[in-house]
Design a protein around this nucleic acid. Structure first.
Lengths: 112, 112
DNA sequence: TGTAAAAGTTACTTTTATGTAACCAGATAA
DNA sequence: TTATCTGGTTACATAAAAGTAACTTTTACA
């Protein structure tokens, strides 16, 4: 399995791209920035993601300190995923990106 | 060849990830945010990129309005790549990401 | 007895991204 | 006239990411 090694980044920016790369990563963070969610809720919300890929991505996030994984001893046990402090900071950055992209797309529309 | 279709993004954020995805894209933008560069200069600076991939990426950026491509009628003709207004805005966003990632990595170091 | 539910795992296949190496055009300088 | 330069293109090979389908575990409820 992929292990996120913080030492390997000469450039901080590469750390960011490593974190958000992949088809589902940003969706996961955006979704968890609303409120914590369980595995099955995330899976439903990220329409089309497979268990395998969702699991892989959540592991990377957990290992890198972007999300918390909490197991509740219900029957069957349920698992809740939530953003850490640093995860919320990341979500804020993503919001500002979102604003830029909104303006960018808007200009495309009005110009063309 | 890949054509960047702005209409296809339900969510602006996807537009951003589409723009910066790939191994070399962010490097290209970061490099051009310093100063305009020619094809061969970029190729040298982005150590290891192939002509094919660099060409592909530059085309996507040009078509999406992130960079300008200017041909100078020298012999042999030289081609200069520079950021557009919107490209510079994107580079600013990337700077703020860089700051976040710097802090993030720093916390990792001091905690572990 | 056996079925269901949550949260995965496993082996395998398909898709997408990236890399490699050879090639091309126009113009010039040797 | 032949090699050289820039800025590529093309066909093909390989690597990385994502998808598929079947399976697993524990406990409870019918």
């Amino acid at each position: 399995m992929f292990i996120f090694n913080f030492k390997e980044f000469e450039c901080p920016f590469n750390c960011f791209t490593e974190i958000i790369k992949g088809k589902w990563r940003t969706g996961i963070i955006l979704s968890l920035s609303q409120n914590p969610k369980r595995f099955s809720e995330l899976k439903k919300e990220l329409d089309g993601v497979s268990s395998k890929v969702l699991t892989d991505n959540l592991k990377v996030f957990e290992q890198s300190g972007i999300i918390n994984r909490t197991v509740f001893p219900t029957v069957p046990p349920s698992v809740e995923y939530s953003l850490t402090e640093q995860g919320f900071e990341l979500a804020k950055i993503m919001d500002s990106i979102n604003s830029w992209a909104g303006i960018f797309l808007n200009q495309k529309e009005t110009v063309n």
